[in-house]
Write a protein that binds this DNA or RNA. Structure first.
Length: 272
DNA sequence: AAAAGCCCCTGGATGC
DNA sequence: TGCATCCAGGGGCTTT
């Protein structure tokens, strides 16, 4: 489910309200992708310093320890303040009660994870975050970096974007959307991309992610932020999930193909 | 080293 | 209505 915009929208929806909170109790449901990596009692009394994000990972910094959260395909968080009653739902698998409210990870498919790390040198943290590419919305991302990285790869441009080793956070929806905006066919070999095209792609990635964050992310099945609010980006989609429908630019029917076991959508006229 | 495939899991949509 | 099949936003791990 969640790509960078959804993770960031989630973060923004509860980061301020949980900051400074003291953990009172943690309860686990069914196993997630990995074990928590510590006893829940160990978390009791720790304080939330801040909530940050790296790619699609959320980092709840407890200073010096860290809870690394991933929403997988179907995960969502909700934060319920102390004034509202704490609800209990099917597929709640991590429930963290604090003096400022309760943070719950709900994840039907359980591809998500909550993992404890002692600090930023933790092997587990390094394993998960160590090989990630640059953050697309920071100054570390540039057209030159994108161009050079794409040149050196031998796979399709869409898979190069999805891989996360060049740039993080671009998932299946936004890869298709960014490539449409950049007028690049997703099946094109990464290494054949020109400088002009990588500049367009750089700008497309930034604008599509920024716009998606502005409108609250994409709600395709049941994504909502930690306040329970839906996103609306899917209403603006140019190609994603629009197979057979007319291109919004040229009216040509949008095509759907499969790349690396995932659906890709593009306009055969606009994108080359 | 890099690329390609294989899974983990549940639920909703579709088709018979 | 009931049941089978297919598909879904991710990404680590294993195999080529």
């Amino acid at each position: 489910m969640p790509e960078l915009p959804e993770v960031e929208v989630t973060r923004l929806s509860f980061a301020d309200r949980i900051q400074g909170a003291k953990i009172q109790n943690v309860a686990l449901g069914k196993p997630l992708r990995w074990p928590l990596g510590c006893n829940t009692e160990q978390l009791r009394g720790l304080r939330v310093k801040c909530v940050t994000r790296r790619g699609k990972y959320l980092l709840i910094e407890l200073s010096p320890s860290i809870l690394i959260l991933h929403l997988g395909m179907s995960g969502s968080l909700r934060f319920e303040g102390t004034k509202s009653p704490v609800t209990q739902k099917l597929h709640d698998h991590f429930v963290m009660q604090t003096d400022l409210g309760t943070l719950t990870l709900n994840d039907p498919r359980r591809f998500g994870a909550v993992v404890y790390a002692d600090d930023f040198n933790s092997p587990m943290l390094h394993k998960l975050l160590g090989k990630l590419g640059v953050e697309p919305l920071t100054d570390s991302f540039s057209p030159e970096l994108l161009y050079r990285a794409l040149k050196g790869r031998h796979l399709s441009i869409k898979q190069a974007l999805l891989g996360g080793q060049i740039v993080v956070g671009v998932g299946n929806i936004y890869a298709s959307e960014a490539l449409f905006l950049a007028k690049i066919r997703p099946t094109r070999s990464s290494s054949t991309i020109t400088k002009v095209q990588s500049l367009r792609l750089f700008e497309a990635i930034r604008s599509v992610l920024t716009r998606a964050i502005e409108v609250g992310g994409s709600t395709l099945q049941n994504f909502s932020n930690a306040m329970g609010e839906s996103g609306y980006f899917q209403l603006e989609s140019y190609v994603y999930a629009r197979a057979g429908e007319p291109c919004k630019t040229c009216n040509t029917k949008i095509k759907q193909v499969v790349q690396a076991q995932r659906s890709t959508f593009y306009c055969p006229m606009c994108q080359s």
